[in-house]
Amino acid sequence: MRLTVVGCSGSAPGPASPASCYLVQLGEFSLLLDLGNGAFGALQAVLDPADVDAVYLTHLHADHCLDAAPFMVWHRYSGRSDGRAVPMYAPVGADRRLAAAYDSDGGPIDDVFDVTPIGPGSWTLGPFEVTTARTAHPVECYAVRLTAGGRSLVYTGDTGPSDAVVELARGADLLLAEAAYPDVPGLPGGLHLTGRQAGEQAAAAGVGRLLVTHVPSWVDAAAQLTAARAVFPAAELARPGGVYEV
Rank of each mutant, 00 (worst) to 15 (best):
S162A: 14
M1P: 15
P120H: 05
R170T: 13
T4G: 06
D111H: 06
P138G: 01
L43E: 01
G79P: 12
Y77A: 15
V115F: 08
L32D: 02
P182T: 09
A100F: 08
D163A: 15
W218Y: 15
I118M: 06
Q197T: 04
V55K: 01
T213N: 12
Y244E: 07
P87R: 12
L237M: 12
G195F: 07
V219P: 10
L225R: 04
L35R: 00
V246I: 12
D110L: 13
V5K: 04
G38I: 07
V165T: 14
H137R: 07
E200Q: 14
A133R: 14
P13F: 02
R97F: 14
D105G: 08
T124L: 02
Q197D: 12
S11G: 05
R229P: 11
G150F: 05
Y56C: 04
T135S: 13
A222D: 15
F40K: 06
G14W: 00
L211W: 04
G36H: 01
V144H: 02
A177V: 14
L193F: 02
V207A: 03
V24G: 02
S152C: 12
G126A: 07
D63E: 09
R209Q: 15
E245R: 09
L3A: 06
L57T: 10
R151W: 00
T159S: 15
L191I: 15
L60R: 11
V86Q: 05
P188S: 06
P49R: 12
E178L: 04
W218C: 09
A12G: 03
G160H: 07
A16P: 02
E140D: 15
P138K: 03
F128E: 05
G208A: 00
G119A: 15
V165L: 11
G126I: 12
D48T: 04
G160A: 12
P91G: 02
P127M: 05
A90D: 13
E167I: 10
L23T: 08
Y89I: 05
P15H: 13
L153H: 00
L193C: 13
P15D: 15
Y56M: 07
M88F: 11
R84N: 02
A164C: 09
D110K: 03
S217Y: 06
D82I: 06
V55A: 04
